[in-house]
């Protein structure tokens, strides 16, 4: 599967989930907060995925839960990418002591044991969604920062940046006007990656009972399913599998989008030469042209 096609598949799946999240009240057959049938009801026509341990419709829960999972994914990814891009660009462009300090900070964050730290922080800060977003966001910005910095290092040596500097442009101006646009594709790819990671993390924490159990999320559905023995009865078929598949589908869609974007940024990842795909002109990689000019 070529990168573009992968990207399209990913975007389609993601779009489906976004639509489900936005139109949840219309799409969901029941109000997931209401007890609409018997606890532990098996699937039926009125409740295609049965009911959970207090009689709430699982399908409706699933649809409404996509709101929280996607929100956490997007907001956290925004936070982490903005932070990562800022650190990466500033560090890579300014070099010197600023870079050293920032990169040692990145090293510290990268060397932290991830999930255990998240669990401790989540338990310590208390269980609400804002805290969850902050905790995940503040822990996953380091990788994007490192990657963006390495590209900035090459960008800052390129001709037009040097020229702008020679003409007396301030650091801020150059970083925003010349460096940022050049690393934007990479930033976009990193955004997708962090969204992916944060959705997984949110689900893991919720499954472990470390997020707000009164909020509907896929991880929380799994938490109750596990706690009420769904793994030992037939209920895993309609109580465990669907939220698991939802998480998997969203993660895969983000991964596909990520591959597609990364491929645009790094031509070495392409299976075919750029010339064989003439129509996709918009994505012609800048570095190639730049090097040719020099």
């Amino acid at each position: 599967m070529s990168g573009t096609r992968m990207g399209r598949v990913g975007a389609t799946i993601l779009l489906l989930f976004v639509v489900a999240a936005v139109f949840a009240p219309i799409l969901a057959p029941h109000d997931p907060a209401l007890r609409t049938t018997q606890p532990f009801a098996a699937p039926s026509f009125a409740h295609p995925l049965g009911a959970n341990d207090v009689g709430q419709d699982i399908l409706s829960e699933l649809i409404f839960a996509s709101r929280l999972s996607l929100t956490v994914g997007f907001v956290t990814a925004c936070l982490a990418t903005i932070l990562g891009a800022a650190v990466g660009i500033v560090g890579g462009y300014l070099r010197g002591p600023v870079d050293t300090v920032l990169m040692r900070g990145v090293d510290v964050i990268l060397s932290l044991p991830f999930l255990p730290l998240m669990i401790v922080l989540a338990a310590f800060l208390g269980q609400n969604t804002t805290n969850l977003i902050l905790v995940i966001g503040l822990l996953i910005w380091a990788r994007p920062a490192r990657l963006i910095r390495s590209q900035v290092l090459s960008v800052r040596e390129s001709g037009h940046v040097q020229a702008a500097r020679a003409m007396g442009a301030t650091h801020g101006y150059v970083m925003v006007r010349h460096v940022l646009p050049r690393v934007t594709p990479l930033v976009a790819a990193q955004f997708v990656r962090t969204a992916n990671v944060s959705i997984m993390l949110e689900a893991s924490l919720a499954f472990l009972g470390l997020s707000d159990p009164f909020q509907k999320s896929w991880g929380a559905i799994l938490f109750y399913a596990n706690a009420r023995s769904a793994f030992l009865t037939d209920a895993w078929l309609w109580w465990v599998l669907p939220p698991g598949l939802c998480i998997a589908a969203v993660v895969v869609s983000f991964a596909f989008l990520g591959y597609a974007l990364e491929e645009r940024v790094d031509p070495r990842l392409r299976s075919t030469l750029p010339t064989s795909e003439p129509s996709s002109g918009s994505g012609t990689p800048m570095p190639v042209r730049e090097d040719a000019l020099r």
């Binding site: 341990d53 207090v54 269980q127 009972g209 159990p213 938490f223 109750y224 706690a227 009420r228």
Partner: peptide
């Protein structure tokens, strides 16, 4: 207690 789903459900009800 976050460890006790039965008590969480009870509180909800």
């Amino acid at each position: 207690s976050a460890n006790d789903p039965l008590q969480i459900r009870t509180a909800e009800l």
